[in-house]
């Protein structure tokens, strides 16, 4: 049954400056179905934001470009679509919210006006009707309609982010891209905003692509998760399963490095080394310099995406090309 909203195939994105070329995204593929919430997890620099920006073609010009691949949204390939087509989709069928609410709103316009703007842009309504709808959206995110005429600086960070969400959902998009929406907020506010996203998503039946470096945040909202490393998706499957039993060495490392309340551990177990410079990636498997299970073949062969235990993985162990040492160490 094809209720796939978004389908990315083998996307490659680069940033080209006069000094260097940055390979930000190196061949990722993913699908988002109607009502599904996909969490895109990875460290800073893994290529998550670039992926999201590529979907809406909001990459910085002229440095960012989509080198190859397809991004199919409800039958249209966005990667090759014209700017005109993209403008009809932005804010309307696919919306994006960004990390820092403090600077995402234009300081000289009222919040009501900023919500009304996106409504008016994609719908033919009277001015009255547009303003009413804008007020409705504010109520929807828990802000009294009477505050429509206030300016962004009169709201706190959490409330600003709610306004941002209101703008994003105002035209009832099919897909919402959320790039670290709660990272800049206090933990308590974080919980509130996440709960709100979850709730609205369900009510409006919006698909969600949630980007985060925080495994916990993703767990609260998403049903599927894709782990990104150095511009590639290294593990991709149902969230509950991946969290229960990570199969990729990097995912295992991520879980191993977070503090846990239920286990008595004397030390944290970070992954040794650093994420590679995207302008200068290692040969073979991008993770091999830091991988505890790495073998000779890993420095030479680039792993392809294979399936194992109901998920997609990129690791030579699951291609059968090398010994699977992970299973032996976990028992």
């Amino acid at each position: 049954m094809d209720n796939t909203q978004l389908s990315i195939r083998d996307l490659r994105v680069r940033y080209v400056t006069e000094d260097e070329t940055v390979n930000a995204v190196n061949g990722i593929s993913l699908d988002i179905n109607e009502g599904q919430s996909l969490g895109l997890v990875g460290e800073t620099g893994a290529g998550k934001t670039t992926t999201a920006l590529s979907i809406l073609k909001l990459l910085p010009k002229p440095t960012g470009r989509i080198e190859s691949g397809t991004i199919t949204f409800r039958g249209t390939d966005l990667a090759s679509a014209s700017e005109e087509v993209m403008r009809k989709i932005r804010g309307n069928e696919i919306s994006m919210i960004f990390q820092d609410p403090m600077t995402s709103l234009n300081p000289i316009f009222t919040v009501g006006a900023q919500i009304a703007e996106v409504i008016g842009l994609h719908n033919k309504l009277s001015a009255e009707e547009t303003l009413k709808r804008a007020g409705d959206m504010l109520e929807l995110v828990g802000i009294p309609r009477a505050r429509s005429n206030e300016f962004p600086h009169q709201f706190s960070g959490g409330m600003k982010q709610r306004v941002v969400i209101a703008i994003a959902l105002a035209c009832n998009p099919k897909l919402l891209l959320a790039d670290e929406p709660t990272t800049a907020l206090d933990v308590t506010i974080q919980a509130q905003v996440l709960a709100m996203i979850r709730d609205l998503k369900q009510r409006l039946n919006t698909s969600l692509l949630l980007i985060s470096h925080d495994l916990g945040v993703v767990a609260q909202v998403c049903d599927t998760v894709a782990i990104m490393y150095a511009g590639e998706i290294v593990e991709y499957g149902a969230l509950a399963e991946v969290y229960e039993k990570p199969l990729h060495p990097y995912t295992e490392g991520l879980f191993g490095s977070i503090p846990r309340l239920d286990l008595k551990r004397k030390r944290l177990n970070p992954i040794r080394g650093l994420m590679p410079n995207p302008a200068d990636l290692p040969s073979g498997c991008a993770f091999h310099p830091r991988c505890p299970y790495a073998q000779d073949a890993c420095a030479v062969t680039v792993p392809a995406t294979t399936e194992a235990e109901g998920r997609k993985l990129r690791c030579l162990m699951y291609e059968g090309k090398i010994e699977n040492r992970m299973r032996t160490s976990n028992g």
Binding site: K88, M96, F98, T103, S104, N106, E117, L121, I167
Partner: peptide
């Protein structure tokens, strides 16, 4: 270069 300009583009404005 400000973020709110990015927001404006993401709304679909030309």
């Amino acid at each position: 270069r400000m973020d709110y300009i990015r927001t404006a583009r993401a709304k679909g404005l030309d």
